[in-house]
């Protein structure tokens, strides 16, 4: 099993609903977030293109955050989900520094927090909160090892890219272009 997410940049409007839904689902304190939206603008008026992207932890195969964690709090779970065991985390922040995606933050309660792919929902057969709420339905989540899953199907049929492939981390958030 290998969980992954594909996000359609042709549909995303950058509304940040994914950010709020994650906050209210996962008790992320206001002022922090596990997912966020970026906008890139290319060209000059009137030949301009923009890309809006909902970003989060890429749940990498080769995770620098896991490698550098001194306590083993950061680890890879079944399905390739990168998680932090709160009780083992000493809040040193090495993982925050190592992540090429800036996907982690120091929670005010003293541990490092990040996207969990809403594993507590996924285990109940639900979709991650961000995927479930998105008004543009631009996010697809599922098991890459299942070739009939929503995410496998869309990646078979569309062009896509990943962020910072040069970091060599094997990220698992794909952006449909």
């Amino acid at each position: 099993m290998r969980y992954a997410m594909a996000i359609d940049t042709r549909k995303c409007v950058g509304c940040s609903d994914c950010v709020v839904a994650c906050q209210t689902e996962n008790d992320v304190p206001i002022g922090f977030c596990r997912d966020w939206v970026t906008e890139t603008v290319d060209g000059s008026y009137p030949n301009v293109v923009i890309e809006l992207r909902s970003e989060r932890c890429n749940h990498c195969d080769y995770s620098p955050c896991v490698r550098c964690c001194p306590t083993g709090a950061s680890h890879i779970e079944d399905g390739g989900i990168v998680l932090v065991t709160k009780s083992k985390c000493i809040g040193c922040g090495a993982c925050i520094q190592s992540c090429p995606y800036e996907a982690r933050y120091s929670h005010p309660d003293g541990y490092v927090d990040k996207c969990t792919f809403c594993i507590h929902r996924v285990r109940k057969g639900e979709k991650p909160a961000c995927v479930a709420v998105c008004p543009t339905k631009c996010m697809y989540f599922g098991d890459l090892d299942d070739e009939n899953s929503e995410v496998s199907t869309i990646l078979k049929n569309r062009k896509f890219k990943a962020l910072a492939p040069e970091a060599g981390t094997q990220p698992h958030i794909y952006y449909l272009v």
Binding site: G14, I30, K86
Partner: peptide
């Protein structure tokens, strides 16, 4: 097309107010 590019995080980490919500009981 020129190569101008600006990059903006609309809703970034540690952005905005820093009020802390009461956290749910853990462990």
């Amino acid at each position: 097309m020129s190569s101008r590019r600006d990059f903006i995080k609309i809703s970034a980490l540690g952005f905005g107010a820093t009020a802390v919500l009461a956290s749910v009981a853990k462990f």
